[in-house]
Structure formats: C-alpha cells, structure tokens
Design a protein around this nucleic acid. Structure first.
Lengths: 308, 308
DNA sequence: GGCCAGAATCGAATCGATTCGATCGGTGTG
DNA sequence: CACACCGATCGAATCGATTCGATTCTGGCC
C-alpha cells in the first residue's frame, strides 16, 4: 500500500479493466433529438430517471444523440448495453452495428425491431379508451393535436400524406387508437410536446366559425393539452363548458393547477426502471422479455358534454 | 475486407482502442442531485445542451450522479475529462481522485476548487444589480426566496444558521449580492427551483398582516418568481401594483405569458458551450482559463414602485 | 521429522488495437 | 548496373489489469 502510494498508483485504470473484463459498466442511452428537446419532455425525463434508479451506483449512463449519421460516436464509444429512447427507422443502421457487436439493446417505446427488447405502452388501446370517453359524452366534431410524426419540427395540418410517411410509432399508435373511435379524425401535427406548441395548435384549430369549430380536442400529450386549454382561454372559451380537452401522459405540470386534466396516466418512471432492469438482466446473461405497460384513465374536469 | 467480413470483424473494439490511445472520447458530466431534479431546472438543461453542442459528434456525455459516496462509478468509469454541474464541498473527494488520475476538470458554477477550471456567472454582482433596481423603486420591506442552500430539500425560513452551513455557492452568492443592497434581507429557502415551490414560498411570505407583508420579493430563480406571482394572485394581490417580484435566470417558461418577468438574464447555453470548449482545449493539451459570464438586466413588468 | 492439504505468491498469457522499428519491394537516378 | 530513397508490409512491443496455472509456503497431522 505504501509502495503503491509512493509510485502514485490510484486504483486500476478503467480502460484496461474494461478491456480485460469486457465490461465497462456503462449503458448507452440513445436519444434521437438534441438534448434540449428530448429532456424538455417530462416523460422522457422521468424514464431517464427510472433508468438511473435501476442501474444504481455501479454504472453510468452515456448520453448519445443519434442525429444524422451519428455512427461515429456509437461505433467508437465504450458501453455494454444500449437503451433507445424511442425507436424509429432512422436507427436501423445503428441497431445493425450493435447487433454485430453483440451489444444488448432495449428500446423504450417505438417501433419493434428484431433483436431489440421492447418496453412499451398500450398507446393505441389507451388512446382508444380516452377517445371513447369523449365519444360517450356525445362529441362528434372532434379534432386532435398529435405529437410530431416524423423528424420535421413544425406545426402543420394533419394529412394522410404525413401519416403515410410517419416514423414515430408512439404518435402513430395514439392516432390510430383515436381513429378507432373517430374514423375521420382530423387535426394538426404539433412541432413538439410543449404547452407553447399546444397553444399554437389550439389557436389554429379553434379559430373558425362556431359551427365548424370542434367541441372536443384530443391532445397526444398533457403539455399539448395544457396549451390547447390556454388557447381556449385566450379565445374566451370555457373548458369544459364550451370545449372538451383531454391529454395523454398524466404529467405533473408546473403552474397548471386551475384544472385537473382528463388524461391517460402512463407509468413513465416505471418504463425507465423496466428498461434498466432489462439491461441489467441481459448483461447478467439472464433471459429477459418485452415489457408492456398499461395506462390508467384519470378523469379530471376538462371533459364535459357537448355544449348547447 | 472480405476476409474481415468472413471473420465477423466489425471495426476496432472501443475498449482496446481506448486503452491503447489513452482516450475514450467520453466526457463525464457530474450532477449532484438525481437526474429528475437536476434536469427539471431549465438552466441546467440549457447548459447540458450547450456542452453537447460543443463536444459535437466525436464524443459522448457520461452522466454520473455524485450522490452519497458515489465514488464507485467515478472511479471505475471510463472518461477523459469531467464537467461538474455545480461544485460543492461534497465533491472534494471525487475531485481528489480525478486530480490524481490527471483528468482535466471543469465546473459550471459553484465553489472554486484547486485544479478545477471554473465557468461562472457574476452571481453576486447580478443579484446586487437587480436588488438595486428594487431598492431604487423605494422598497424597504423586502424578502427573498432562495434556491436550496444545502443538500436538504425542504421549505424553511432563512436563518443565519443555515447560511453559515450553506454549501451551494450559487445561492450564497446571490444572497450576498442581494444583502449588499438590503443588509438585513430575510426570507425563506425553497425546496427546489420550481414554480410549485415558489408558490409555496410565496404563500408563506405573503400571509401576514398587511403592514408587515413585504412589498417586494427577490426570487433567486425565474421559476421561483413565477410561483411567487401565482401565490400573489391567489391572495388577491396584483403584480406589480401591490407586490414587486423579480427573478433570476431569464428562462423561457412554459405557459407563463401574462407577465414579462423582471429578471437578470444569464447565458446558460453559453456556459455549457464554454465548458465544452474548455474541456476540448484541455484534452488537446492547450491551455485554458476560467471563464466568467455576465448577466443582463431585463426590465419586465413585474416590478413597480412601493404601493400606497 | 515427514508428508499433504490448503493458502499465498508468482509468472506468464490474455484482452485487442496501436505504434514503432525494421525489413522488403519497387522506382528513379548517377 | 548499382545505389539510394521512398513507400508498403511485417513483427514485436506496448497500454494496464485480470486470470489461470504453477510454484512456494504454511500449518496440521501422523
């Protein structure tokens, strides 16, 4: 020990250790967007927190943004397992590389991929359930505000063309669920999941003649729903008297306490924990299987019968 | 190439490569709190985004939570340089380890540490400036809502005992700056930087007799200020007619557009970029020096003259 | 005192890429 | 034709810890 101190030796070199053991204790977390956008979403953040809870002390999370080619980092970085936050076709190449490297992969939400363990939510079923609630209240003029369907980040009207070229499984599933109840459901695609984008989307949907204006709006996230409610307020519409708004996520939203949002509550932290646990199991050589979570309907006070 | 393919060889092994080269292309980002709490703060998130911008493709960010002993991960993880998000005495041991390992370190905000490059803000000076604005408006009954001063996360009255045992440099500096103008400044310590905690703090400060109630509140973050304004609204106080509220940060806050907050705007993303650039320089063997940023006063409409 | 099991110590091989020095092959010039 | 020079190819050493097999040491027991 004294000799070690004299020689200025301070513990094993992580690099050498990881080479020899074939383990680094690092789990790669791959996000598709840039950091700022990804982590603004409370669900993503909660999932990340869940992952870190489950991985615990022994291991760190390596944040990799899979923008553009992005392979450089993914190919050269040291990590034992990968967790994808959302899984779109853009990742095909990255997934191929990891498969060849024999790196276990887990995806939280998103398209199913061969060799990638899926931690998913009953998006379609949950969207259908809450749409059914709105339907049962008697609404027929219904519109939706969807999360981004592809890489483009801008507000635009929902078109079949966009749907056909959509890559974000979550948004697609939730849209399909809503359309199971309202087959002709139309609306807008939001630029991102934020209340400001929801506000913009809400204004777009709600400015129009009273007779054509929707009486209910299905937002694909709570942040969007909050924005829509703010839009309604700006236009002098009362919620839920004049307009029914429902969300999705069950997020606790800062500074939004006047209403109790009617929404589908999803276990975001648990999704992260499940992903972390799956990764741990896979690394230990134990078998692991897909995990699917169910959302719970939370009746708030933002949905009511058709006005008039 | 064909031979390589036949042998199932897919590029160099990152572990071996990092051992030989002594470089891994990974930068450790050390946060003191758990993920969920750290990244809820828009300033921290912006800084993280700035870091990732600057590091660019070649390298990833390894998220390390330095909770408790936490050394296990810090000691065993592979990374070339470290960026601390806030730098408190709790990190002394971790810093010691890295220094011995010869790992360059950069700290965004926080206490100065030997061998740790500082990227900092003019917290004290900025706090003094905005306090002066409030002072010049004639306010004398002034209170503050500070960010957490230590590891304890709960709302409590500001006491000299707490100040004496404080570890969070940012909060201390901002408090001192405010006290440069209002020497006897009193108030409460918030549980965290959120509008909900600000609301709670605001309610605590504003419920009392009209004669003893403060006419101005200096919040140490914009989120806290927003909460205080919501508290004022709940109590039927108009801002800024009945109560002046100023913040700190210059954050864009979701769903808060009724007011334009009077605050000190700080360049959060730039802080992150500076940290990233410093790390890059240090790794390249180039010299780098401390960076200090200045905040800019943004006059909004939440500060006004003393009522009555 | 001798022998053996078990513990402790030691040396060598390994992980996989990189890097350096040393050949080897080829071209160009005197 | 020979020599020098440049690039390409090759082999060996290196990075630092771990692991395995072998050797040495210790103690207990006959």
């Amino acid at each position: 020990m004294t000799a070690a101190r004299e020689l200025n030796y301070f513990g094993p070199d992580p690099r050498a250790r990881s080479l020899r053991q074939g383990r680094s204790g690092i789990v790669g977390v791959i996000i598709e967007d840039r950091v700022l956008n990804s982590f603004r979403d409370p669900m993503t953040l909660a999932a990340l927190d869940g992952i870190s809870q489950e991985l615990g002390e022994g291991s760190g999370m390596l944040l990799l943004t899979a923008v553009g080619d992005g392979e450089s980092t993914i190919q050269s970085a040291v990590f034992d397992a990968a967790i994808f936050m959302g899984c779109s076709p853009h990742l095909a190449r990255s997934i191929e590389i990891m498969r060849q490297r024999n790196i276990p992969m887990v995806a939280i939400e998103g398209q199913a991929f061969d060799g990638v363990l899926a931690v998913s939510l009953d998006n379609r079923e949950a969207a259908r359930r809450i749409a059914q609630v709105v339907h049962d209240l008697g609404h027929t003029r219904v519109a939706t505000v969807t999360l981004p369907l592809d890489a483009l980040r801008s507000l635009r009207p929902l078109s079949e063309e966009i749907v056909a070229g959509a890559t974000t499984a979550v948004s697609i599933d939730r849209l399909e669920g809503a359309r199971d109840v309202f087959p002709d459901l139309d609306g807008v695609v939001a630029a991102s999941s934020s209340s400001d984008d929801g506000l913009e989307a809400g204004l777009r949907l709600l400015t129009g003649s009273v007779s054509s204006r929707p009486t209910a709006i299905l937002a694909q996230s709570d942040l969007l729903a909050v924005g829509v409610i703010r839009a309604a307020e700006q236009l002098g519409l009362a919620v839920p008297a004049d307009l029914t708004v429902v969300g999705f996520d069950g997020a606790r939203i800062e500074g939004f306490s006047d209403y109790q949002l009617t929404t589908m509550k999803q276990p975001a932290t648990e999704k992260g924990r499940a992903a972390g646990a799956a990764v741990t199991a896979l690394l230990a050589g134990e078998p692991a299987s897909d995990v699917s979570f169910a959302s719970v309907l939370r009746m708030g006070n933002t949905a009511g019968p058709v006005p008039g």
